[in-house]
Design a protein around this nucleic acid. Sequence first.
RNA 1: UGCCUCAUAGUAUAAUGGUAGUACGACAGAUUUUGGUUCUGUUUGUCUUGGUUCGAAUCCAGGUGAGGCAACCA
Length: 555
Amino acid sequence: MSEERSLNFLEQIVEEDITNGVNGGRVLTRFPPEPNGYLHIGHAKSICLNFGLAQKYNGQTNLRFDDTNPVTEETEYVESIKADIQWLGFQWANELYASDYFAQLYEFAVTLIKKGLAYVDDSTPSEIAALKGTPTEPGKNSPYRDRSVEENLQLFADMKAGKYPDGAKVLRAKVDMASPNMHLRDPLMYRIKHAHHHRTGDAWCIYPMYDFAHGQSDSIEHITHSICTLEFVPHRPLYDWFIEKLEIFPSHQYEFARLALNYTVTSKRKLLQLVNEGYVSGWDDPRMPTLSGYRRRGYTPSSIRTFAERVGVQKRDNLIDVGLLEFCIREELNKSANRVMAVMDPVKLVITNYPEGQTETLDAENNPEDESAGHRNVTFSNTLYIERDDFMENPPKKFFRLGPGLFVRLKYAYIIKCESFEKDAAGNVTTIYCTYLPESRSGGDTSGINVKGTIHWVSAAHAAKAEVRLYDRLFSVENPASEEGDFKSFVNPNSLKVVPEAYVEPSLLNVKAGDRFQFLRLGYFCADPDSTPDKPVFNRTVTLKDTWAKEKVKN
RNA sequence: UGCCUCAUAGUAUAAUGGUAGUACGACAGAUUUUGGUUCUGUUUGUCUUGGUUCGAAUCCAGGUGAGGCAACCA
């Protein structure tokens, strides 16, 4: 008995279409990125939607690059986009390019000219803008609007043949300059750009605009449900107009609200600025909301898919709490990530009644949530490193860690009692002296003592060194895009803290990039490609939930 | 002072004329050799004013608020 999950509005539309036999029940969607940047979390929602919808209704999804503007598009982006989609877990039915259709689109344009529905306009950009009117005032017809079909045909052919410089002429649809919808005021279909295209090279010097490429490409591919974001709602009448006048396959456009995440920007233009101006190390900087950034940060594809599922689909603008994304990755990694011990900010701890030079091997479970993850050995000795935060000279009431006279358990090992400590001239604690209870060993504790706290540790003589990169949100304000002023002035100066020499269990010397762990009590970490055999590098994916940190803030 | 969207707890998202529910968050407690996990409980909501109806979050009308639209970008 599976519980009935309610359908989102797009699923309802698709189910209705299937019920009504529209397109014979066939479902074909498409994901149409422009190859001018890397995919980000907002695209992930769109990908999950388009591919997910098709999967659910036995359909397919095309990957189609919307590459109609040669000056911003590059093959590097094509490759990264393909890699990211596959990493997310989806496979397209066909890899296609709007540029594959340039010849066909040209013919479509000729058809419209012949029908008297398109004309070549010699006006300058500012003249066109001036005649366009405003949202509250109708536009005026261009003086070139009534050229003959023959003249338009010749001029358009000459445009294609390269007889004119960039910007000298455009091809426009003849719709209605007085339309209340600005997009219907004789929209541009083609412009002249003597630019090298990443796929067609120099074959073309005229390129179709989005409005005359996207819908026609959908139609050529017989896309049944063309799903895009809300800003294209006013384009839909034009989308339908072209299809109607061209009498081609009637694809239909549906719009949903794009994903917005707080403390994040999701705009390719803004992300490009962060990259180009050095605010981050690249598109895959683990602080970036790009899929390549999340991947390097340690996010799993399934956690992002789960997130996309949970944020839902609607037509109202939204600002999702980035905490939900963090919940999704914690939820998954809690079940799958092996636990290890690592100390970020070490302070030395000496156990005075444990023989100097003696070691013992302790049994440690790899994952309390997964018995099949097995056990490992950790080496114990009289000199350890513990986390500086786990000791306080004058601890408050509910501090369940180490302080003068306090007991605490060393994870997988013994209960210890703090006997004394030393400080340097600057007042920093340098060494903590403890005694241990031999009968309190984990698994065979007969001491009868109950301690409230358990802390992690590494043996000083056995620990390996690792670099650890601690990330925080990239922006210090909830909605950087809506703030006054340059969004980059809200970049969080503490978004990256590097710990050059953390101490970790020696088993971590053998990690491969992408390996994920829970550093006990600290968070989830992922090995970075910068790792070397003698010095692993870890990125903090996300912290563990920390109720003690919250408690501290309250006091 | 045009056109188009949209409006349900703090944030998202259901309820499709018939008990306003779920997730995340927050708060409280239990469990715990991770202040993690898990479990239990609590809290908070239909923008507004009318109308239709036995009954309205849902349908209708007016208002208010938010977002989008005037790139040779997509």
